[in-house]
Simulated assay, not measured.
Amino acid sequence: MTTHADKNGGRRPTERYKALEILKVIAGIVLLFAISWEIIMGDHINFSQTYLIIQFIVCLIFLCDFFIRWGLAERRNRFFWKHLPYLLISIPWLNILDWSGVVLTHDWGILVGLIPMLRAFLAMVIVVEWMVSEKGRMDRIFWAYIFTVVVFTYLSALVFFEYEAGINTKLVGFSNALWWAWMNVTTVGAEIFAVTAIGKIVTVLLPSLGMMFFPIFTTYILNRYTGKK
């Protein structure tokens, strides 16, 4: 079986690694759908058993990917510390807590509740990495930027809805959260104001993302029509 060098100087089996990459992308997409369903249709208090099973399977795939790449890396110590956040996010903490019967305080509950959302952003990054895997393809990179803005805005709406629903009197349904997110990412602003700490953080991050990515869109369009590369 053919092999090629990985980013850390080691050798890896091409076919198996590509299969794992595809599986990881599929798992990331499934996770995005599962989190969307859980937040929009859930009760914002308890996670459903269906979601816990799905995120456990996805976590196993992410963990397998980490340990395989770690085992194939030439500088394993460097690889481990560089990808430690990926490992920590990939651990199925919610399942572990559910199995152990641990009852969390409100503050710790908020912190642990963020982990599925962090994993959703990780899933977004995995899909983007797959989209730009072929170097020298400006169109793929451009569409990866578009994908990032759309999915990041959508996930931000999910986060906002998860933590503001039932607390923010101006938030009526997920459609309001989605409208709020797009109005903020375009830096226009909305009449729905965050009342939770997490909501306020997302409110700051969204316009920042918009200010970073929309100039890229403008530059791409200009280069397209002026013939520049």
Rank of each mutant, 00 (worst) to 15 (best):
V128Q: 05
G136F: 10
G28T: 08
E162M: 09
F147P: 07
M124N: 05
V172D: 12
S90A: 15
F142Q: 09
L111P: 01
T148S: 13
L60Y: 02
H4K: 13
S100C: 07
I115Y: 06
W143I: 11
F47Y: 15
S156Y: 02
Y225T: 13
A197R: 08
I115V: 14
F47H: 12
K229F: 11
D65M: 02
N223A: 07
I96V: 13
L205V: 15
W93A: 10
G101R: 09
M211L: 15
F62D: 03
T196V: 07
F193W: 07
T2V: 07
I192Y: 00
T2F: 10
R140V: 01
L84A: 14
T187Y: 04
W108D: 08
G28H: 01
G109H: 06
V128W: 00
R75N: 15
Y86R: 07
M131W: 08
V195C: 06
I45W: 05
F67Q: 13
I198M: 06
Y17H: 12
F161L: 03
L222G: 01
A165I: 05
S36M: 06
S208M: 14
I29F: 10
P215D: 06
V202N: 01
I115A: 04
K170T: 08
D6C: 10
K135G: 12
H4Y: 12
G101A: 04
I45F: 10
H44N: 13
S90P: 10
P13V: 08
W179N: 03
L31S: 02
K82G: 04
H44Y: 03
L111F: 13
I110R: 06
V102I: 14
M41E: 07
V112A: 10
F66C: 11
A34I: 01
L114G: 11
V58W: 02
D139P: 01
L171Y: 02
Y220D: 05
A19K: 08
T226G: 07
S133K: 11
P85T: 07
N77K: 11
V128M: 02
D139K: 12
F152Y: 04
L52M: 15
P92Q: 07
I96C: 11
I96D: 07
G227M: 04
Y154V: 05
L52S: 09
V195M: 10
I110A: 04
Q55M: 10
I201S: 09
S208G: 14
T186E: 05
R12V: 14
P92E: 02
L87S: 06
V102F: 10
H44K: 15
I96G: 08
N8D: 14
K229C: 05
I26P: 00
F174Q: 04
I201W: 10
F80D: 08
V195E: 14
I68R: 09
A197Y: 07
A34G: 09
V159W: 00
H106S: 10
A144T: 04
N176H: 12
I53L: 15
W70T: 04
F66Q: 12
V188F: 14
P116A: 02
V202E: 02
G9S: 05
P215V: 01
Y220P: 02
Y225L: 11
R119V: 10
R119W: 06
F121Q: 03
I141K: 09
N8M: 13
I35R: 00
I201R: 03
L155N: 06
E21H: 07
K82Q: 15
G210A: 08
K228I: 04
I40Y: 03
S36F: 06
I89M: 15
K24D: 05
G71A: 13
R140T: 07
A181P: 05
I45M: 09
N95P: 03
K7F: 12
